[in-house]
Amino acid sequence: MYKQPSFWLTLIALVVFFAFISYAQKNFDAYIIRIMNVAAIYVILGVSLNLINGFTGQFSLGHAGFMAIGAYASALLYMSPELKAMNFFIKPLIWPLNRIQIPFFPALLIGGLLAAGAGFLVGAPCMRVKGDYLAIVTYGFSEIIRVLFNNLQSVTNGPLGLKGLPTYTNLWWSWGWAVFTVFFIKRLIDSSYGRALKAIRDNEEAAEAMGVDLFYHKTLAFVVGAFFAGIAGGLLGSLVMTIDPNAFNIMLTFQIVLIVLLGGLGSITGTVISGVLIAVLMEWLRIVETPMKIFGITIPGISGMRMLIFSIILMISVLFFRHGILGDREFSWQGVISFFKRRQSNRGG
């Protein structure tokens, strides 16, 4: 492993990347840092959903629900008792949550683990359903979570949500988790488990006939995907400083699905690219919502135009780029090296 050039190239790339992250955190404009944080969270969400949808072939629409669990669980653990008391002014927060305050990292992990638990609860019964029916079941689960959180006043503060959350999320946290997510899921996909997941995607009956435990592997995909969605939810809550159940609605799930579809079902590299792309576009496209002058003509800003443009992007990608940016292709150092070798031989010839 250590003798392979790809290992050292990856290591060098990571060192360079985190040196850049360190520089960015210290020197970049706060607004750019924010977009970079959102991009990292989108990468985590996209890659984790791709594990379920792209690699295992299970059409899930429950990611927003897993995010909500992670966001609320971690927030309720890292918030100070004073901040909790200020937020819960209708019904007091239940004991012992009203007393507990733990550091950000363990709070995030617990949020992720609780989301993973929910992933198991969803993944296990979903053995009996496939395709569109699975999508409906997982969407139903996501809505159940949202409605539950809207009504559990003494646990989640109901629809009022939690405000003024401390901002722990920075580039180290967000991109650290993004890199770990990509690394973990890449390793999982390249392992025997990953091959089993792909076999399930390609032909469930054949995979089962070959001895693949469908229940175990499908549930594994849901649990791992949900864990990282929970982590992303926790990071997002601390970044935005405000969470409420209605923030985790179907629109958020569609946004994550858009990232996966644009990147390519079954492509981690594509998902990373589209995650960053959509985070940047989400902010950059705000210009269409503000008044602007083109050739001396003032065009009024139309609120809500951003989402219209995203809908058009989704339609175009579904119609013309059915396999997304990269299809199921992945970045590899071998590919980069052979690309440069080809260019050199072309020049030589």
């Binding site: 404009d29 706060a30 607004y31 924010r34 949500g161 405000k163 935005v240 400083m241 405000t242 969470i243 409420d244 209605n246 923030a247 902010e283 705000r286 919502e289 503000t290 800003g301 609120s303 809500g304």
Partner: peptide
């Protein structure tokens, strides 16, 4: 005056405030 729409949504209101200040 730079106008941004918060959509009547808490999280978006926070995003808008951040964008107005930072960008």
């Amino acid at each position: 005056v730079i106008l941004l729409d918060n959509k009547g949504d808490k999280a978006e209101a926070a995003n808008v405030a951040r964008r107005l200040i930072d960008m």
